[in-house]
Design a protein around this nucleic acid. Structure first.
Lengths: 347, 347
DNA sequence: TTGAAAGCGCTAACAA
DNA sequence: TTGTTAGCGCTTTCAA
């Protein structure tokens, strides 16, 4: 009953040839007779041969496995990214090993170690909320294991990063609010140690300064951007003596939580306070008023990250870029429309 | 510059002991002197030793890797499930390899083959939309590789399934609509080849029959339950000559799409048509009116699936259950509240 | 075009 | 408590 694995030795024996020849026949080895190859393939099929990857990996010192470390799996954006990665990896014969850092630097280090021990051929990572250094990647890099950062990145020579232009996106979002007549715009932001949040803030700042309104640090609220904490931020905004007329927040979860809180307090969105989010999550289309937000191409980001990594592994010249910037897009919906005049893209 | 791997032989040589002893010292092998173990561990650390899993896998014929195949990664429910699985797997020293069937039977077969070739120790799977047979699992099962079905399952001896009681949930959802005074209730359902949809339909049917309203097959709409197709289903409902007063739909995406379409057509929810969804996705809390739905414990389902599988791999007696049914819960919100009287759970 | 042989790094049966 | 030894199944020189 217990089924013994068929090995190349079994095939070799059956065919009265050497295991080496079988090994060659199974691959596209140059210099093997066509008919020999056919005999091997036929026998393999008939005998139910399955390659033993470990033996092969051990011998070749490569695994056809790619690691992915993300802060959390269960967000719309992240699952979209991973979906894109899986698609490309799968199409190229790579497996994906996935691990969550749970937003913790410590768990991120553990995950990197696990990936390293699993001998991944390459690693794609989006950093945890509180990751402070990059020393945990050194072991990988010393072994020339390619590392790709996406979304929450850190600058590192030899590593490609995939991002959108968060500064520009932040600028556009803020600029849009200003165009809608907002004079006092709050920004709810994440940890500014993370590029994405720092850059969105920077864009916000620049737009305010350029417009002549000026940047007021007391209008920046640092937040973990969850449902809970964003509702608290909204409460804080409501308690300000000089109530703002616009909110630009660094993700949609946060924007939606704010809108709900504001509405509960009798504030009209967008008439009293206009709101702009970030990510273009499905919830942005469901909240009323529909949320103005920045479209973040998650699936594409995943596909490009994986493609870049695989190119690198195959030593393709295209695999050696430093930073890839994807296109984002401000999507204007009702939550920020205070002027009839403007002629925005409505989705 | 190119860093040669440190092996147990290097450690053995440094310490003047045998590789076997080093191997033992690195594990929690019984019968090794404490101080020897300490010396080995110290040396390993100092020399930067990293275990080579392939050699170990090859030797032990086990991989510490668990495969997961899901229809799609990018849904709230699924990413929650996977998050739970990852947590448990990680805590027990297992890696997770993840693959998407993209709802296609054909791709599901490919994924199973890949998992098989990767020599996963066990596999967890939620079936694709159109999977019709189980013969693609036979190779795995013949090799005693444990298989766990979750959510979209199929009955199979020797395999544990993790589900909720979809029939009961469908019954409760429908019953609730009946209690709210609905007399003509439409059910939007998925492919009834999948247990989850078949059972929800069955619960719906039973509730209608028991209540005396009776079951009318023309009120059942079979649908892929996406945004798009559900909006079409809503249009179909609006075009019925005898417009229904209740909709029970098999997921929240679909419910939300319906509500939006109904509102656009000037129908009041819940006064004209009451709506109940399924899953308790975050969007259910965002749509107005907030959606009555069935809470589906995704994270828990993932954790339990992984725990069960790992128990099985460790030959724990608890790993041998046939079906595990998790608790669901009808969450009543505004989208179905037509009566003041009732005293429902409001979240 | 094929074969012989060595070895990837680790583990486990057996012996000491 | 430790060492010896023999592979796990595959790939890849080198030789034929």
């Amino acid at each position: 009953m217990i089924h013994k694995d068929v090995t190349i030795y079994d095939i070799a024996e059956t065919l009265n040839i050497s295991p080496a020849t079988v090994s060659r026949g199974l691959k596209d080895h140059p210099g093997i007779r066509k008919d020999t190859k056919k005999r091997i393939l036929d026998a393999a099929l008939k005998m139910g041969y399955q390659q033993n990857k470990f033996a092969s990996n051990l011998r070749r010192k490569s695994t056809n496995t790619i690691g992915v470390i993300v802060p959390r799996l269960n967000s719309y954006f992240m699952s979209t990214v991973i979906s894109g990665m899986e698609k490309v990896a799968n199409a190229n014969g790579y497996n994906l090993i996935i691990s969550q850092s749970q937003e913790s630097f410590k768990k991120e280090i553990d995950s990197v170690t696990t990936m390293y021990n699993s001998r991944v051929d390459g690693l794609m990572i989006s950093l945890a909320y509180d990751t402070k250094s990059t020393s945990h990647f050194e072991t990988l890099l010393r072994k020339q294991i390619p590392l790709i950062f996406f979304d929450r990145i850190i600058e590192h020579p030899n590593c490609t990063s995939i991002v959108i232009d968060n500064k520009k996106a932040g600028y556009e979002a803020t600029q849009h609010l200003i165009e809608q007549g907002c004079k006092r715009i709050v920004h709810i932001d994440g940890n500014v140690n993370r590029n994405v949040y720092a850059h969105r803030l920077e864009g916000y700042r620049q737009a305010l300064i350029e417009s002549g309104i000026g940047f007021d640090p007391s209008l920046v609220i640092s937040n973990r951007l969850t449902d809970q904490t964003s509702a608290e931020a909204a409460q804080h905004i409501l308690s300000m003596e000089n109530i703002p007329d616009g909110i630009f927040t660094a993700n949609d979860t946060s924007a939606v939580a704010c809108i709900r809180e504001l509405k509960r307090a009798g504030i009209r969105v967008p008439q009293d306070i206009a709101v702009v989010g970030f990510n273009n999550d499905p919830i942005s289309m469901v909240i009323e008023p529909n949320l103005t937000t920045v479209d973040y191409p998650g699936q594409e980001m995943g596909e490009i990250a994986a493609t870049t990594l695989i190119n690198k592994l195959n030593k393709q010249p295209t695999g050696n870029l430093n930073t890839i910037v994807l296109r984002h897009k401000l999507i204007v919906r009702e939550s920020s429309m205070r002027r009839e005049k403007s002629n925005p893209i409505i989705l």
